[in-house]
Nucleic acid binder design. Structure first.
Length: 541
RNA sequence: GGGCGCAUAGCUCAACUGGCAGAGCAAUGGACUCUUAAUCCAUAGGUUGAAGGUUCGAUUCCUUCUGCGCUCACCA
């Protein structure tokens, strides 16, 4: 591969279109700094001026390398020095200098570009007087361009022996210490650009995240899905599709209060009504909730909908998708997450929320769903779980409905018992927990819904979609009632969505997957902030 | 929002029971044309997160505030 835009050789000394006054820009900033930092920046700014005096624009443009470092490694591999010497080539690479080992009239630089790293050997007798004067103004962190033949040094390292050398960009700030790097996680998140440069593994984490997203696209595209984009700004009555509190915003020209979407669901199902039988959207969702290791206020979801499919079809599809992603992204179906191996090889076990929740309450599924003996069961659980907040949650849920009590009982007492060495489907959700899912024909107290759990996290949520407009009206009405009773996460009544259903939505199943959490699993990252480039943090001062 | 913890040079970390704030890397000056955290000599660099308080004396003890981490609650 050859890159570049024609400026293949190093630019000769000359005039620049506009002269950069580095010193003036820095004086104001420097006053606020500690004296060591001020001294370092001032020193580097002086070097930038010295480069200009040599005819090198320290912030120039228009010079591109002809190669990337990976090409050198691909070309020579482990070839010995004498073999490389027979065909050393004429290489041209550029990148950031990570380390300098200097010997007066020669030096070794560690240079990194987007493809990898290479050593560059700068020798006074090879790069010439001017090249060496430029080198003397080099600091770790600068971006450089080097051209010359390949060689292998006495210590066995593949190296570009520079015949030409220049600095393309001067770094005014020093990089963190080379051995320990950046240990302060706050600084790593706030200054991700530094984190990416110096913290091992961070670049790979975000490459893997990109692979996950492109892998999902490819998987769905292959199966005839159409990728769409629906509004992020929702009118208040549209802001449903999930149980969450939204962010508020406002459109000035229309004088319209808006909310940031909490899900893509309702618009995607409108598109299924419109005839796009298989649609998906990968996009940012916003939920005005707390922040912790598994939650960021904005996160990325993939939701997909398939007409003429059922939740059973989606379980199979989910198994295929996750297995493929694990293999594509990590190289194996067996993924290690925080010391626990998780095997993504299908099939994944199914666990019944109804059975596990009812059993935790000491009731039969039928009695639990009917609410028979529920109050006593909840009281027993509360006594058993003396002082536990789970017991309190259970009591609250039991006051709302038996179905919600079963869901909470599952969550509090049974969720931790799901297998840890592979993903698991949870099925048999009570009706009350799912205002948008289709009732089960064989048992209308339940819905055809599943969630996928792995590593203690909810990864996916899917169901056969409710397409009976009358039933949907009733569910929305229940939500409105719940909201009136103080449930801030209950959905608004989306009249237009019901109208769409009245035009007839084919039998459909749909699913949502949290991409950030999937990225955590497949990159072995303990915090969601480690897979979001710029996680939300409070402002300083 | 509750609980626990952390904050010292640009970076990584020391500083005993309250007694002169130190080191390594980075920087600056010097030596060095096969290094891998290069090496060697020398120099400089601090409002100890902020504001109060106790004390003869506070990086150290107390209070409040700010930011971050863990955790609980909420949620995906």
């Amino acid at each position: 591969m050859t890159r570049g835009c024609g400026a293949a050789s190093l630019r000769p000394p000359g005039r620049f279109p506009h002269f950069i006054r580095v010193d003036a820009r820095l004086s104001r900033m420097a006053e606020e700094l500690g004296s060591t930092e001020r001294e370092i920046i001032a020193q580097r700014a002086r070097k930038a001026e010295a480069l200009q005096a040599l005819g090198v624009n320290p912030f120039g443009n228009g010079q591109a390398p002809r190669h990337v470092t990976a090409e050198l490694h691909a070309r020579y591999g482990e070839a010995p020095a004498d073999e490389i010497a027979r065909d050393p080539g004429d290489w041209s690479v550029a990148g950031r200098v990570l380390a300098v080992r200097s010997f007066g009239k020669a030096a070794f630089l560690r240079v990194r570009d987007g493809s990898g790293e290479i050593q560059v050997w700068v020798k006074k007798d090879k790069v010439g007087e001017r090249g060496f004067e430029i080198f003397k103004l080099l600091d770790v962190g600068d971006v450089v361009l080097a051209e010359g033949p390949a060689t292998r040094t006495k210590t066995g390292e593949l190296t570009v022996e520079a015949r030409a050398f220049t600095i393309l960009t001067k770094a005014l700030r020093p990089l963190p210490e080379k051995w320990h790097g950046l240990a302060d996680v706050e600084q790593r998140y706030r200054q991700r650009y530094v984190d990416l440069i110096v913290t091992p593994g961070v670049r790979e984490t975000f490459r893997r995240r990109a692979k996950i997203v492109s892998g999902i696209r490819r998987f769905l595209d292959e199966r005839g899905y159409l990728e769409v984009e629906t509004p992020t700004l929702h009118k208040p009555e549209e802001a449903g599709g999930a149980a969450a509190r939204p962010f508020q915003t406002h459109h000035n020209a229309l004088d319209l209060d808006l909310k940031l979407r909490i899900a893509t669901e309702l618009h995607l199902k409108r598109l299924v009504v419109g005839g796009f039988d298989r649609v998906y959207e990968i996009g940012r969702i916003f939920r005005n909730e707390g922040i912790d290791r598994r939650h960021n206020p904005e996160f990325t979801s993939i939701e997909f909908y398939q007409a003429y499919a059922t939740q059973q079809d989606l379980m199979a599809l989910t198994e295929q998708l996750l297995h493929r992603l694990a293999v594509e992204v990590t190289g194996s179906a067996r993924v290690t997450f925080q010391g626990q191996e998780i095997d993504f090889t299908p099939p994944y076990p199914r666990h019944s929320m109804l059975e596990l929740g009812a059993r935790a309450l000491g009731l039969s599924p039928d009695d639990a769903l009917a609410g028979r003996g529920l109050a006593e069961a909840v009281a027993r659980a509360a006594a058993r779980e003396n002082e536990s907040e789970g017991a309190w949650k259970l009591e609250q849920a039991a006051q709302r409905s038996p179905g919600e009590a079963i869901a909470i009982a599952f969550e509090v007492f049974a969720e931790g018992e799901l297998p840890k060495d592979r993903p698991a489907f949870v099925v048999d959700f009570p009706l009350e927990t799912s205002p948008l899912s289709r009732r089960r024909d064989a048992d209308p107290r339940l819905v055809d819904r599943f969630e996928l759990f792995a590593a203690g996290m909810e990864l996916a949520n899917a169901f056969s979609e409710l397409n009976d407009p009358a039933d949907q009206r009733a569910r929305f009405e229940a939500q409105v009632k719940a909201r009136a009773q103080g449930d801030e996460e209950a959905m608004p009544y989306d009249e237009d969505f019901v109208r769409a259903l009245e035009h007839g939505m084919p039998p459909t199943a749909g699913e949502g997957i949290g991409i950030d959490r999937l990225a955590m699993l497949l990159t072995d990252s303990p915090s969601i902030r480690d897979v979001i480039l710029f996680p939300l943090l409070k402002s300083r001062e």
